[in-house]
Design a protein around this nucleic acid. Structure first.
Lengths: 370, 370
DNA sequence: TAGCCTTTTGACAGCGCTGTCTTAGACGCT
DNA sequence: AGCGTCTAAGACAGCGCTGTCAAAAGGCTA
């Protein structure tokens, strides 16, 4: 016989959580107040057995498992995360920590991570971490004491702060980095092959017939940016095309820096590249603005492509040809790694995901006009 | 004497959470494993007294309070959210539920809500709710059983789904809506005065000298959109300016619909408005694309303004004059209302926040050219 | 100094689960 | 029949806090 535990319970209207008062027996309990005891009673087993079924532990007879599952389904039972966290070794919470000012990027990451969490019954705790140094350390320690997430997902550029990694290791919080720049052996991470994506984009431009292609790079300490520049240069070299002096312009990944680079690139009307490959979309938009001002038509007079597939890339005209980062997928994968925890030691710690070339309206064959 | 509870404890290296093993006494405990017992012991009081101090309950002598606070500070103590949730009536978790496809908007909301949560020691659980009808109901019931958030923030247009509100009320989860359209007495909400913002923007255009101003509206069932149209019409009426037939164009808040409206508006070169006020930024960008194609210079030939201050509004040229919604502030306020729970019954349930007119480069006096 | 009231503090149960240990039963072998 | 071995299931403690209630400590008056 299972222990008789609270055979009836009714929520008073008074309280927030409600005090239990004795009342008429009732099969169904109040919405959202079903506990493991209720399931155990209905199934005629102990709560431990219910727990076993819930957690897919072995040593439960098939018939028992079915009975428990039926009872849980009938009562619409959902285990309480706080109780699980307190009693067990998992909190069913995944932290998503970011410091990225780009709302769109973080939003995609978030959606991907959320989807993975939902599939596994986890939840996402999102925190914006703007501190650095010891303030960051303190925040993490406090955060970890408070919620004890089962793992955290770190987005760039936050994922490259050494003090963060140190403190996460100190509090033994597993983490997965998304597109980290350094120290790749330190933890599991997911990434996209920026080099290859830039290579492919460049090859696409070459396939269109472009020979004189300019590239606008990113911040020097940004490893992904450097990879993009490399991919571009490599594709040009492989195709046997010369990259003339000044055809690789520095940039900062900002609209403004794209604008400035475009002014340098397009200044001399007789000596313009037929295509410009901007290291990210924001800079591409800067180029587009300059082109508009100079009455250079895209793509008729100039092909322009970007990188990132930012939201803005679709709300301008011409819509920007660009590279889509699998941000949501990377985040899903990161969450999965954390949820299945420990499956990370096999071989390389990095998981690569595929980019996608998105061809829109800003690219075309060179000199269509002439 | 306080109860002697675990005077020493050491985390083994083995376990995830670690089994406690006996070992040499040590003043400091491992990072992030300080409990209320440790604080109580150091302060020489019972855990209940520590709890009282933590929760700012009355009936604690000043000297005791200071002693406890010092002990807590020394040990770097942070109460565990799961334990608090399980034992008490608060989970220290606020839910942010959304279904809005606009990443930027949700991102701003999120940041605002997060800031408020952090100030109060709360955390944000973010969930994307794409279901409708009874699937939505089920999701909410499960979510609530799982994490029992102390309150939830609902963003538009999710906040206008009646089944959502019903089920939240059924599970007694307090909620605050952001910019809801209907049923305003039903719950606390925060909003911005769209009507007034549109009025002010129109007045600004009039102040610039524009008389023939066109407006592109939003979806008919979108209450905020309707308010914007009203604000525009009212400002025109108050200024004694005629709104000619066809000068108010329907739109869908999408880039494409802005484009289509612009084509109608700008078709006849001899009969163009001198200014176009788009009901949101995405549509304004559509207008801008058409203007570019037609070689209409903004703002020299045409003034264009938007509404929302979306991220894209700043990465185009000319940068868009627009209305900034106080999204982050609304979310902060929503979170505060939930955290201080219950202070909402005083007077109107709505809290209004101020918009901001952001004048950039896309607006200027009419006919500068002519 | 007893008696009463108010303020401060502590003991203890228990929130809803999981981890550990134990027991009950089924099965096989000598 | 006796014993060891295995699987299935339950008893029980306890995670780290809060809520309730009871006890102790002060304060005041007569």
């Amino acid at each position: 016989m299972p222990p008789a535990s609270r055979p009836w319970r009714i929520e008073t209207l008074a309280g927030w959580r409600g005090q239990r008062i004795t009342g008429v027996a009732s099969g169904a309990t109040d919405l959202g107040t079903v506990t493991i005891d209720d399931v155990a009673e209905l199934a005629g087993v102990s709560i431990k057995t219910v727990s076993r079924v819930l957690n897919r532990e072995p040593h439960v007879r098939e018939s028992t498992r079915l009975r428990v599952e039926a009872a849980a389904a009938k009562l619409n039972y959902t285990p309480n995360v706080s109780a699980r966290a307190l009693a067990g070794s998992r909190s069913y919470l995944i932290g998503l920590y970011y410091d990225n000012p780009s709302l769109g990027y973080v939003g995609q990451i978030e959606q991907g991570a959320m989807a993975a969490c939902r599939r596994a019954g986890y939840h996402l705790i999102v925190e914006e971490l703007l501190e650095t140094g010891s303030a960051l350390r303190d925040s993490i320690v406090a955060l970890n004491a408070r919620v004890r997430p089962d793992g955290v997902i770190l987005t760039p550029p936050l994922c490259d702060r050494p003090e963060l990694l140190e403190v996460l290791e100190a509090v033994k919080a597993p983490y997965v980095r998304i597109a980290p720049s350094w120290d790749l052996d330190r933890s599991p991470y997911v990434y996209m092959d920026d080099r290859k994506a830039a290579y492919e984009m460049t090859a696409y431009l070459q396939g269109l017939g472009h020979r004189d292609i300019a590239f606008i790079g990113g911040p020097p300490d940004h490893v992904a940016a450097a990879s993009r520049t490399e991919g571009f240069a490599e594709a040009m070299a492989v195709a046997g095309l010369e990259v003339r002096a000044g055809r690789i312009q520095p940039g900062e990944f900002s609209f403004r820096s794209g604008w400035d680079a475009a002014e340098r690139l397009l200044k001399v009307a007789r000596d313009r590249p037929t295509a410009i490959f901007a290291g990210n979309d924001d800079m591409a938009l800067g180029v587009m603005a300059v082109a508009n001002r100079l009455h250079i038509e895209i793509p008729a007079d100039l092909t322009l492509v970007g990188f990132d597939d930012s939201p803005s890339a679709q709300v301008i005209w011409p819509r920007l040809t660009t590279v889509r980062q699998p941000a949501a997928e990377m985040a899903s994968m990161a969450a999965d790694i954390l949820i299945e925890r420990g499956s990370g030691e096999s071989g390389s710690r990095g998981r690569r995901l595929d980019f996608e070339l998105i061809v829109r309206d800003s690219s075309g064959p060179p000199g269509r006009r002439g």
